[in-house]
Structures are given as structure tokens and as C-alpha cells.
Amino acid sequence: MRFTGKSIIVTGAGSGIGRATARLFAGEGGQVVCADKTDGADETAAMIVQDGGTAQAIRIDAGNEDDVARAVALACERFGGLDIVYANAGIGGGIPGLFEDTPETWAEVLRVNLIGPFLAIKHAAPRIVARGKGAIVCTASVAGLRSGAGGPAYSASKAGVINLVQLAAQQLSGSNVRVNAICPGLIETGMTKRAYDYAREHGKEDRIGGLNPLRRGGEPEEIGRVALFLASDEASYINGQAIVVDGGLSSSHPVTRQEFGKTAI
């Protein structure tokens, strides 16, 4: 029960990694604000309450400053303050071809995936500092480490998240508030559902995650458990880091070469 009495916000809590993590936090005594733009937030909160935990749902757009401020205010009003934020909400979007993508697509992906975590840090950090210590965790991606794991807009946004947590950790020096990121590999979520469904429909499920040494995709709970670790006192000396959870995918260089104007060979 590492989080008994702790006030926690999880964005993107309506499904996938966010839902799994919110339930794990609550299972260890956390009081969780489940934030999402869909009614999945209400469903996740209901699951937690049914399991005997404490949760409050709120509908927000994670890339909208007023909405993020409302979520922080709710946590403080309902649970007496704020100790932990998991800025997990994100979207895909964009197309594989860098030179065919549009500025409008990039703007929306960056708004949610990068400005969203910035807003979470901006509004949550002062409240967490007031508690004396705490943690902020953001979802980045292996796509933010190097090319080959996502589209250009998505990859650039996640690279920004990695740099953001480094900057935030430095700017919160002396506050006893730690800021870290998780870089998931291929995880079965709503964002990857299409790929998983296609593989299963065509009898190629055994190829899912085939490029990593574990030869499988990951589960949302496997990311959630890392988020809990980073938010807990067990990670009290980890700060400003991007922790990779990808089955070993990023331990190797690419096995295909991309030629300009041609398919990979």
C-alpha cells in the first residue's frame, strides 16, 4: 500500500495504460482523479470504486490549460492536496511520410502529446511542492528516442516529452519533486488496436512485437507498474530520466534501411 492517503491524477485514464495505472494506484491506497476526454474516465472510476478504492472522474482535454487546471483543483478540493501526477494522455496522428504531412496535424499532435504534459507539470508542480515532496511521471515513447518506432509528428512530440522532464527536473531543483518519463514500446492499447486486430485477423499474431528480444507486445499493466515505481519512494533518487520499457526493442540498431523515395530494404 505505497500510496495510502496520496492524492493522484492520471490523465488518459479512460483506457489502456491510463486505466491500468489508475487502477494500480488505487489498489495500493491512492485516491485517484481519473481524467480523460471520453466517458471512459467515468468507467475507470467506477471500476476502482467497485474494487473498494477511491476515485473521482473528470472530463478534460489534456492539451487545454483551463481543463488541466480544473483537474488539479478537483484533486486538491476532493483529496486535500496533490502528491502525484501521471501525465499519460496522448494521441497518434500523422502519416509515415514526413514530406507529405501537414502543419495542422503536427500542431494537434504536439498540443496533446507535448503541451499536455507541460500543462500538467505547470499546474501540478506548485501544489505538489506545497506537500513537501512528490512525483510527476510522463508517458513518452521509444519513438522519441530514435526514428523507426512511430510517425514523424508522434515521434517528435515524444522526443519533446523526454527533454521536458529533464528541464522540469532541473527547474524543480531543491523542491523534492521528481519528474521522470516512461518510454513504452509496442503496447496493446486503443492506439495500437488497429495493428493488433489486423495481425489477428490475418493469422499473424505471432509476429506482434517480433522485432524485440522478448518477441511479444507489452500489456498496459507492465507500463503501469513502472509508473507506480517511479512515483513511489522506492525511486527516491531517480529524477529527470526516461525509463525505457520495450522488451529490448531499442537495444539494437535497425535491421532495415530507409531510402529516400523508396520503401525500406
Rank of each mutant, 00 (worst) to 15 (best):
T192G: 10
G134I: 10
E100Y: 04
F229Q: 03
T189W: 08
N212D: 03
P254M: 06
D61W: 01
A73L: 08
G81D: 12
L186R: 05
A169Q: 06
G174H: 02
C183L: 00
G29A: 12
I9Q: 11
G81S: 11
D39Q: 13
E77Y: 00
G80T: 06
R225I: 07
F79L: 00
K122T: 07
P220I: 04
A143R: 00
V179E: 05
K133W: 05
G12K: 04
A242T: 11
V112G: 03
Y237K: 02
R19I: 02
G63M: 06
D42K: 14
R207V: 00
Y237N: 07
D67A: 05
D197I: 03
R225F: 02
G90S: 07
I243E: 07
A13S: 14
M47Q: 14
G16L: 08
I208E: 04
E205N: 01
S175L: 04
I238M: 12
Q31T: 07
L98T: 14
Y198V: 06
H123Y: 15
N163A: 12
L164I: 04
N212W: 02
E65I: 01
Q258P: 00
R59C: 09
G80I: 06
Q166M: 13
A231T: 11
R131H: 00
V226N: 03
D66Q: 14
G29L: 10
I58R: 02
T263F: 13
E222I: 03
E234Q: 14
V245T: 09
L186D: 12
A20M: 05
I48F: 08
A13W: 01
I58E: 06
A159F: 00
R111A: 08
V244N: 05
S155L: 01
E205H: 02
G92E: 09
S236A: 15
V85I: 15
P96M: 04
L24I: 10
L230C: 11
E43L: 12
C76W: 01
I182F: 06
G63V: 02
A55E: 11
T21P: 12
E108M: 04
A35I: 10
D197A: 12
H123C: 09
I128V: 13
F229E: 08
G18Y: 11
R194F: 09
A195M: 15
A153Q: 03
N88K: 10
I128S: 02
A55I: 10
D246N: 01
D101C: 01
G16K: 05
G132K: 08
T139H: 04
L74R: 05
G210C: 03
F25C: 06
P220T: 06
G90R: 08
I48G: 11
V226H: 03
L114F: 02
